[in-house]
Design a protein around this nucleic acid. Structure first.
Lengths: 180, 180
DNA sequence: AAAGTATATTCCAAATCTATATATGTCGCT
DNA sequence: AGCGACATATATAGATTTGGAATATACTTT
């Protein structure tokens, strides 16, 4: 899914600035669905504007930098709907956390314990935010995707909590064996 | 986590060609942990070779193209261990599937049903492969990460199966309301 | 009063991905 | 027997994307 389609998706739910679109991919409704950076969003908005998919309106602000508010056009909505019909590619994941844990035998047990604890805390915080969010209680698609996210995060947090102790013991044992 | 570290990680488990490293990130042990492409792997191996982190040996093959088998050096192992100590960045996910489902109200119900069914089938196939894989029964880190992956995929497949019917009904209902 | 966070955009080098080219063998299908 | 599809193997050009820095200003915390 290219960035231009992602921006159209955000704008289809309401007007937004580039900055707000970025936030939608961080903490907002698309928080754990798709990542996107400033360096990709702003050029994409420029291209979409040139193609008539969005309309950008500059707004001077008194106590803030000027901002450009973008709104999606009828043509943009049509392009979004067409892009949504294309068969989805495979999910792509990049998890430093899992890569590091994979090599647990390279690391001190205390370091591993810290990594796991911080990750469990992250899940708790994220779940707390997700459970009290309003933006996802309306359209069925949003509710469905949100529910899947909640379910996966709860399961992951439970797995880490339930297996933490045994895992750390096993790493200790393996390290002692290797040291002999 | 940069590609050079990812390559060192794969090579720390045994010698491999660039092609085999790619496979490790597709179906292999790093299958759903981290994505990486040819266009990144080959230049990374070249750089690692220049820096003395890996040793590349060219091997002529009778019935296949020549291949370069890389093996990690002591310096490479040290660099890997150092990189593993750095604090992990946030996980990055890119899911076309979730993005499309989010906009369920833009799509025909039959199309959504197909998307969900294909995704459930993908989970079943992937789980079957993961459950019978040998590479993950040894080191505690690999077992732990593999177990988390299995748990998450099982949960996701169950969520999709359990909520599929209700979701499609809700989309139908919402579409009928909107048509009035 | 300094430091940090938040709003807001832009640019750029470096990293990375996609797609393709090259070469060859095997497998199944018709 | 011939054809396409797929697997092995490397490499590169071109496009995209990332991640960081630069630029402003205002509010909040220390």
């Amino acid at each position: 899914m290219d960035i231009r389609t992602l921006c159209l998706g955000v704008l289809s739910r309401g007007d937004a600035t580039g900055y707000e679109i970025k936030k939608a991919f961080e903490e907002g409704p698309f928080g754990h669905i798709h990542a996107a950076s400033f360096g990709a969003i702003y050029p994409a908005l420029g291209a979409l504007s040139d193609e008539g998919m969005v309309l950008g309106t500059e707004q001077a602000q008194e106590k803030r930098p000027d901002k450009k508010v973008f709104s999606i056009t009828a043509q943009g909505r049509a392009a979004l709907d067409a892009a949504l019909l294309a068969p989805p590619g495979d999910d792509k994941v990049r998890s430093d956390f899992l890569f590091i844990l994979f090599f647990a035998n390279h690391l001190p047990v205390a370091h591993l314990a810290g990594l796991i604890d911080r990750r469990i805390a992250w899940y708790r915080d994220t779940l707390a935010r997700m459970e009290t969010c309003g933006h996802c209680a309306e359209r069925p698609g949003e509710v469905f995707v949100h529910g899947l996210g909640l379910t996966i995060y709860r399961t992951a947090a439970e797995y880490l909590s339930a297996n933490r102790g045994r895992f750390l013991d096993q790493v200790s044992a393996a390290n002692h064996l290797a040291a002999e």
